[in-house]
């Protein structure tokens, strides 16, 4: 019999909202305003989080922040080993990225391989002057030299653990759980 898994809440809805507020402020600070800022969410939950952060920045700064969505499936380095193919989501970039400050937004940063793929894919869409990384949860366990610039919450996890992010738009409620 497999050992019983234990679920703890890392962020509830209010804590997640506060974290996103702070992240929005930090992103605007990092970009020195919003002039060249583009937020790019990674499918799937990164897209929703980028949308929220963009709205918060828009509210604070009073200007429109362009945002896009990126599906990195076709840039993965493990297509040989995954059995059934993952469903490919939409990739939609609102503007030419050349000269922009692109901020990649994702829910969880773990091995860094998704971000590596995202960097490769963005390079095929132009030459941003800068690319930053913004994640809701950094769970450690990197396999590549990649780090986030803006982080909602840092948590130490082991390889068998799972960090589950729920967002209201897709899952009905906002919450981040650690399952171990």
């Amino acid at each position: 019999m497999p050992p019983k898994s234990e679920r703890t809440i890392l962020l509830d809805a209010r804590a997640m909202s506060r974290a996103l507020q702070r992240m929005a402020v930090e992103v605007a600070e990092l970009a020195h305003g919003t002039a060249d800022l583009v937020l790019i969410g990674i499918q799937r939950r990164g897209v929703e989080l980028a949308e929220r952060i963009a709205k918060m920045i828009e509210k604070d700064e009073g200007v429109a922040v362009p945002r896009g969505a990126l599906d990195i499936t076709l840039y993965r380095d493990d297509l040989e080993t995954v059995g059934p193919k993952p469903v490919i989501g939409e990739t939609r970039l609102p503007v030419d990225l050349t000269g922009k400050h692109a901020v990649i937004v994702d829910d969880v940063l773990y091995t860094g391989r998704t971000v590596r793929a995202a960097l490769d894919e963005l390079a095929d869409f132009g030459r941003p002057k800068r690319i930053s990384l913004c994640v809701l949860v950094d769970r450690g366990g990197r396999e590549l030299p990649i780090q986030a610039d803006v982080v909602g919450k840092v948590v130490k996890t082991g390889p068998g653990d799972r960090v589950e992010v729920q967002v209201e738009e897709l899952d009905g409620s906002d919450q981040v759980d650690l399952v171990r």
């Binding site: 599906d71 499936t73 076709l74 840039y75 993965r76 297509l79 193919k85 469903v87 490919i88 989501g89 939409e90 990739t91 939609r92 490769d120 894919e121 095929d124 869409f125 132009g126």
Partner: peptide, 18 residues
């Protein structure tokens, strides 16, 4: 699966490394 591939052909660099 063909749906997202339509978009690849509209990109400035019409190529993915899959």
């Amino acid at each position: 699966t063909a749906e997202p591939f339509k978009e690849v052909s509209e990109r400035p660099i019409k190529k993915v490394p899959a």
